Simulated scan of single mutants.
Amino acid sequence: MDYIEATKEVCAGSADAWDDTTAAGAVQLAIEAWKRLSGTDLAWDQFGLEMLDIRARLYADHDDVVVDAAAPARDDVETRHAVATLVEHLARYHEYLAASGRDDLARRLDHDAAAQQLRRAAAALA
């Protein structure tokens, strides 16, 4: 499956229907784009730093998640849009978790902060 198709497939479900494995897959897809495209524009470096921090803080327990998709072929409008859309879905997932009341206050604040951080990452690609 190519990269754009993979991002669309992950985004097909609404963010409030995601689980941690789907979210970890989205993080992995976003990081793969950064790995492949960093160096072409400083925006990718800013994006990558945000995504690596999110992975380390919230998805360290999901190192075994693998996404079977080709790396993005080039840094173009379509790729940036796909990555930004993916990250926006991930931000909505974290907003949902922050508002759901399932976790304690500290964890809900982590999710809220993650949503804001993910939006900064997506904005870096605009």
Results as ranks from 00 to 15, higher is better:
residue 126 A to F: 11
residue 40 T to F: 05
residue 49 L to P: 00
residue 4 I to N: 08
residue 79 T to G: 05
residue 11 C to Y: 07
residue 90 L to D: 04
residue 103 D to C: 06
residue 70 A to E: 05
residue 12 A to M: 09
residue 10 V to I: 09
residue 124 A to Q: 07
residue 103 D to K: 07
residue 118 L to P: 02
residue 90 L to S: 00
residue 89 H to Y: 10
residue 22 T to E: 12
residue 112 D to L: 13
residue 32 E to N: 15
residue 78 E to K: 09
residue 107 R to V: 15
residue 64 D to T: 11
residue 83 V to C: 01
residue 75 D to N: 11
residue 90 L to K: 03
residue 6 A to R: 06
residue 21 T to S: 13
residue 96 Y to D: 14
residue 40 T to P: 00
residue 53 D to S: 14
residue 46 Q to I: 10
residue 38 S to C: 12
residue 50 E to T: 07
residue 14 S to I: 03
residue 99 A to D: 13
residue 54 I to G: 04
residue 82 A to L: 05
residue 82 A to M: 02
residue 37 L to D: 03
residue 92 R to L: 15
residue 115 A to I: 04
residue 118 L to G: 05
residue 106 A to K: 12
residue 1 M to V: 12
residue 7 T to W: 06
residue 126 A to I: 02
residue 63 D to V: 10
residue 26 A to R: 02
residue 93 Y to A: 01
residue 42 L to M: 10
residue 2 D to G: 13
residue 95 E to K: 09
residue 114 A to Q: 03
residue 44 W to F: 05
residue 40 T to N: 06
residue 12 A to G: 10
residue 48 G to S: 03
residue 68 D to V: 09
residue 37 L to I: 07
residue 3 Y to F: 08
residue 10 V to Q: 13
residue 53 D to W: 10
residue 116 Q to P: 00
residue 84 A to M: 10
residue 72 P to C: 01
residue 76 D to P: 02
residue 44 W to K: 01
residue 76 D to M: 05
residue 117 Q to L: 15
residue 62 H to R: 10
residue 27 V to N: 03
residue 24 A to Q: 00
residue 102 R to P: 00
residue 69 A to Q: 01
residue 4 I to V: 12
residue 36 R to A: 09
residue 14 S to Y: 12
residue 33 A to K: 00
residue 51 M to P: 07
residue 63 D to N: 14
residue 44 W to M: 01
residue 17 A to I: 07
residue 120 R to H: 13
residue 15 A to K: 03
residue 44 W to T: 00
residue 22 T to M: 15
residue 107 R to G: 02
residue 6 A to C: 03
residue 66 V to F: 11
residue 67 V to G: 07
residue 122 A to Q: 04
residue 113 A to D: 15
residue 38 S to T: 15
residue 101 G to V: 02
residue 73 A to H: 04
residue 39 G to P: 02
residue 38 S to H: 05
residue 38 S to A: 13
residue 122 A to H: 04
residue 101 G to H: 06
residue 31 I to K: 00
residue 5 E to F: 11
residue 1 M to T: 12
residue 118 L to S: 05
residue 48 G to D: 07
residue 63 D to G: 15
residue 6 A to T: 06
residue 18 W to D: 09
residue 70 A to N: 08
residue 10 V to R: 10
residue 100 S to R: 00
residue 119 R to G: 02
residue 43 A to G: 09
residue 87 V to G: 03
residue 117 Q to T: 15
residue 106 A to G: 08
residue 29 L to P: 02
residue 83 V to W: 06
residue 72 P to A: 01
residue 76 D to W: 00
residue 63 D to C: 11
residue 59 Y to K: 07
residue 109 L to R: 13
residue 1 M to R: 11
residue 90 L to V: 01
residue 44 W to L: 01
residue 61 D to H: 12
residue 62 H to G: 03
residue 78 E to H: 08
residue 22 T to I: 09
residue 118 L to K: 01
residue 18 W to P: 06
residue 86 L to A: 08
residue 124 A to L: 08
residue 65 V to R: 03
residue 18 W to A: 11
residue 3 Y to I: 07
residue 97 L to I: 09
residue 82 A to W: 06
